[in-house]
Nucleic acid binder design. Structure first.
Length: 435
RNA sequence: GGUGGGAUGGCUGAGUGGACAAAAGCGGCAGUCUUGAAAACUGCAGAGUCCGCAAGGGCUCCGGGGGUUCGAAUCCCUCUCCCACCGCCA
């Protein structure tokens, strides 16, 4: 959420920001409620002040009868105002939590995803001297992806990853962990793109995949609720990304400045209901209810957060380059940005089976939007407290990365070559997936 | 699932109806001493929110919510989490 003081002082800018982002938010109503709220807080404060004075007197006096009467009267007045404040505050908070984040200067203005801007491309679009197949077909022919049987036992949009596909998943995990936990490798990445950030390595984590509604809401990730799997018997949600539990890890905590940046690389399954995406990407495993993902989460000082995101994107690119997959880096425009985002950058990877780029990575810079809700702060060296800035980003969405590998590395004979860097993580240094 | 014990500031921990924003210790910051550091000594230090240009002042906060009372860290109810033991279990 935004600082209410900021909204008070920048009413028009906040309104315009909502418009740019296609998010409906009644800012006038919010400020009207804000005024009421402050007035009530003042009135209640005055009554309580009187009550406290009365209590002081009470200690000195022997005959307390009159004072107790006075106290009762104050109590009555107080009881009248309390529910009023509660009501106002509830609506106030509901609107306040809906107000989207401000945006970075370099976020493109646009209505919808058509306004997104390609910032750069890497790699050649591969040319085949045969008709390249889609991953679904390849997966079936090679007996590495089984969708029909998954449909039988779990329903649509599920899959069994088998044989080399299952092994590829673990190879990708090992590959990513070996890079992100190695400070020297990270130093190399920083040097190559000329950034000025710490090379501190990422802490590997396997986080919980169920989360309580409170922390989920404070991550600004509970909505859209219809997108979440929910276990009512225990009042828990299944996470849609490791970000949800990783980001909430330090809620209600104060981090020391010298411990920042704090970087995590989490591995977890991600669960998505994909409500409202009927008929979209129904072939293959591009859009599924359950997939495994490696996710980066970073907490840093406010002044470093843009550079931190640039670093994170550089890591994403390094990972994709290591697999020799062609991609484009896309700056997401105002109309397509997630509500909590200050700046969002996606990576889209070339999929020969679809003959186009598809999203494989996203990188969200939230600034203090989440940390203000989560109450995650940093104690600066001068003793002052500030909200930390938070970044989250995909390292590998494993399903989609496997799609990219098998489609880009397919051969005329229907086999798939395994990217060189992954072979050492495959049993027997496997080079090729064959029928 | 059962029984018992807990949750107090950055940390440890005292506090069982008005004296308590809360002892003490550790840690932090500043100073004295020192060539410098350590030690010792002295002093300063919670967070949130509201009013105010500011100086300053008010209110709230002792795990969360509710209640009793003129008044609650303290009494009652409830929830959550933690610890110990038992049971079950990968």
């Amino acid at each position: 959420m935004l600082d209410i003081k900021y909204i008070r002082e920048n009413k028009e800018a906040v309104k315009k920001n909502c418009e740019l982002r296609n998010i409906k938010c009644d800012i006038d109503r919010l400020l009207e409620l804000d005024e009421k709220r402050r007035k009530l807080i003042g009135e209640i404060g005055e009554i309580k002040e009187k009550r406290n004075e009365l209590n002081e007197e009470m200690k000195k006096v022997k005959d307390k009868k009159d004072l107790i009467e006075k106290g009762k009267e104050l109590k009555e007045n107080l009881e009248k105002l309390k529910p009023e404040l509660e009501k106002v505050e509830k609506e106030w908070k509901t609107i306040l939590w809906k107000v989207p984040n401000v945006i970075s200067d370099d976020t493109p203005i646009g209505k919808d995803e058509s306004g997104n801007k390609v910032i750069r491309k890497w790699g050649e679009i591969p040319k085949f001297d045969f008709q390249p197949k889609e991953h679904g077909q390849l997966g079936e022919e090679l007996d590495i992806i089984d969708i029909p049987r998954a449909a039988k036992v779990s329903g649509s949009r599920f899959n069994f990853l088998k044989n080399e596909a299952a092994l590829l998943e673990f190879a990708l995990i090992q590959h990513a962990f070996s890079i992100l936990t190695n400070e020297d490798t990270l130093k190399g990445v920083i040097k190559e793109v000329g950034l000025d950030v710490s090379a501190k390595s990422f802490i590997p984590v396997v986080p919980p995949v169920l989360i309580k509604p409170g922390p989920m809401e404070r991550m600004a990730r509970l909505e859209p609720r219809e997108e979440r799997y929910y276990a009512p018997a225990d009042d828990l949600y299944l996470i849609g990304s490791a970000e949800h539990t990783l980001g909430a890890m330090y809620m209600d905590e104060i981090i020391k400045e010298e411990d920042l940046p704090m970087r995590f690389i989490g591995f977890s399954t991600a669960f998505r209901r994909e409500a409202g995406s009927y008929g979209k990407d129904t072939k293959g495993i591009l859009r599924v209810h359950q997939f495994d993902k490696l996710e980066m989460e970073s907490f840093c000082l406010p002044e470093n957060s843009i550079e931190e995101q640039n670093f994170i994107v550089a890591i994403q690119e390094y990972l994709m380059q290591s697999l020799r997959l062609s991609y484009q880096v896309v700056a997401i425009c105002t109309g397509d940005l997630g509500g909590p985002d200050y700046r969002q950058i996606d990576i889209e990877t070339w999929l020969p089976g679809q003959n186009r780029y598809r999203e494989t990575h996203t990188s969200d810079l939230m600034n203090d939007y989440q940390s203000r809700r989560l109450n995650t702060k940093v104690r600066k060296k001068n003793g002052k407290l500030e909200y930390v800035h938070m970044n989250d980003a995909t390292a590998f969405a494993i399903g989609r990365t496997i799609i990219a590998i098998i489609e880009n590395y397919q051969q005329a004979d229907g086999s798939v070559v395994i990217p060189e860097v992954l072979r050492k993580w495959m049993p027997g240094n496997l080079e090729k997936i064959e029928k």
